[in-house]
């Protein structure tokens, strides 16, 4: 009886896990199935073909978009880590006038919905002449309130004696941040790095607004426009192939660093 119960339990669990995995499996299969089989596909197509992929590569510069996404997401992640730790350090370890004020301003901006600044931010980009440049994709995201708060929290747990000792050794403040605090804050850096990278990799609304030139588009934007526009010529497999390409880099990274992904995103409590 107990054994029966446990079989039932695992069957139910497996079915629910399949609910989350099978659609992705179907998508991959559909992207390598002949176009006319997709409508009936459930498990395995009768023959495999890469024609959807070759057609997609002909139609959209997905490789260039991958590079763009990589440049944008890496620059943002780098900026967020550097600026975040600088500001987090000042807010946690240095005394200065206005410190609390700045801290509360940061907290306040976190509660501010982005919907309010969307239109004026676009206009700023227009006025700067940043439309259709990497600047528009990167600069507004270089500083992130959440990362500042997280760095601040983490640095607070690091004893002051460590910093004082470094100062006695003649380290300047930047050296303290990057030579002393960084090696001691790897969990925070990994967490902030992963969530920032993920968020900027998957961002799509902002690129849709500020980028019009195809050669500068990020991957999610290119795939979105491909999916809603007419360029897929109603070929379903081609659309799915582009979606597979978009998912692939992150899924690969996820397979290798699953634990870090889950921990990071859970600790920040954000999605995407």
């Amino acid at each position: 009886m107990k054994k029966f119960k446990s079989i039932l339990f695992y069957t139910a669990l497996t079915i629910s896990a399949l609910t989350f995995v099978y659609p992705f499996y179907w998508m991959v299969m559909a992207s390598i199935a002949p176009e006319n089989e997709i409508g009936n596909l459930t498990l395995i197509p009768t023959s495999l073909t890469l024609s959807s992929y070759s057609q997609m590569l002909d139609k959209i510069p997905i490789g260039g978009a991958f590079i763009n996404s990589l440049i944008v997401a890496s620059s943002i992640t780098f900026g967020v880590l550097v600026f975040g730790s600088m500001i987090g350090y000042a807010l946690s370890k240095l005394m200065f006038k206005g410190r609390n004020l700045i801290f509360y301003v940061i907290i306040f901006t976190m509660t501010l919905p982005f919907q309010i600044t969307l239109i004026p931010q676009y206009i700023i980009m227009v006025k700067f002449g940043w439309i259709d440049t990497y600047w528009a994709l990167i600069v507004p995201y270089l500083i992130n309130a959440l990362s500042i708060i997280m760095f601040r929290q983490y640095f607070k747990s690091i004893p002051d004696s460590l910093i004082d000792a470094a100062r006695l050794d003649g380290c300047n403040e930047l050296q303290i941040i990057f030579r002393i605090l960084w090696p001691n804050s790897m969990p925070a850096i990994i967490t902030i790095g992963i969530i920032t990278f993920m968020a900027s990799w998957n961002e799509v609304l902002w690129p849709l607004i500020v980028i019009r030139e195809e050669s500068l588009m990020t991957m999610p934007q290119l795939v979105t426009l491909f999916a809603v526009g007419g360029r897929a010529e109603s070929q379903l497999g081609v659309k799915l192939a582009s979606a597979v390409m978009l998912a692939l880099p992150i899924v690969l990274a996820y397979l290798f660093f699953q634990k870090y992904f889950i921990q990071s995103m859970a600790s920040a409590g954000i999605k995407e």
Binding site: D132, I211, R212, E213, E214, M217, L225
Partner: peptide
């Protein structure tokens, strides 16, 4: 015309810029 969005959007962006 720079490829990507509808040409109408691109023209508008050019007018604005």
């Amino acid at each position: 015309v720079p490829e990507g969005r509808s040409s109408e959007e691109i023209i508008l962006a050019a007018v604005v810029g």
